[in-house]
Design a protein around this nucleic acid. Sequence first.
DNA 1: GTGTTTGCAAAGTGTTTGCAATTTA
DNA 2: TAAATTGCAAACACTTTGCAAACAC
Lengths: 141, 141
Amino acid sequence: MLGGPPNPEIRRTLKAAGLRSTRQRHALASVLLRHGNRHVTAETLHAEVRAEGVKVSLATVYNTLHSFTRAGLLRELMVESGPSYFDTNTTPHHHFLDQRTGVLTDIPNGRLRVTGIPSPPESGEIAGVEVIVRVHSGGPE
Amino acid sequence: MLGGPPNPEIRRTLKAAGLRSTRQRHALASVLLRHGNRHVTAETLHAEVRAEGVKVSLATVYNTLHSFTRAGLLRELMVESGPSYFDTNTTPHHHFLDQRTGVLTDIPNGRLRVTGIPSPPESGEIAGVEVIVRVHSGGPE
DNA sequence: GTGTTTGCAAAGTGTTTGCAATTTA
DNA sequence: TAAATTGCAAACACTTTGCAAACAC
């Protein structure tokens, strides 16, 4: 399903990000951007492209995830110990973290507000605010 | 400064937490609880007790940090890739993270509010809300 | 004395890196 | 063909673990 000819739209996306369109990057971008918002780790993404028959090394998956992040195509989330997550939703938003399953879910940018932030120490500027709402779901009955 | 006789208050704290008062745990607790709120990693704490002349292995520091966390004496923060931080302030509060220096600072429990959290997926219950305010400070002139 | 804790070294995870071979533009 | 990218294996940072010796109660 992925060995075919390059998709011109993905090629354009990579170009626009200043990245050469290689077979590996194309396959990764294609999987990442195929559905809506996703939270992947290097391992899960690697498994996914390989399952489609594309040969990519794990090191390349790491490199590519970072390139994509630098290019603004992804956002990196360091939520727990364990692997980093990469979020295909790069707009400002926050997350639910299910403590039992480890699953991350977007909190849609909407009603959630953080107010009353005091001014930062060291005369610094606020670069971003991240909210994690830890949830414990009741497990399967 | 730390090789002396055990401090009875620290012994009591450990006892109350259901932990035997060993030389190592006593030294670690003593350093941790000496000043106000602190953010330590296993490495920084290890260096600190050893600088006081107490011999403790790094493995024991890790074990002890987790015991203390389980006992409610510390709170673990996983803020970035890199090492875990342990916070001696176990009351609900949030943090500034200086992106340049990596330094964590408490946001005192006060005006900061998170409002408009939608109900969690999977009929889960909210177990906690964590806010990280990323700050970029202007570096030393 | 008995069960707990320690320290070491080894193993484990997740990630990065050096570098030769390959590929892209 | 020049510059970028890949893949491998080795290195890396942080953390956990197995187990014998040491220790607290």
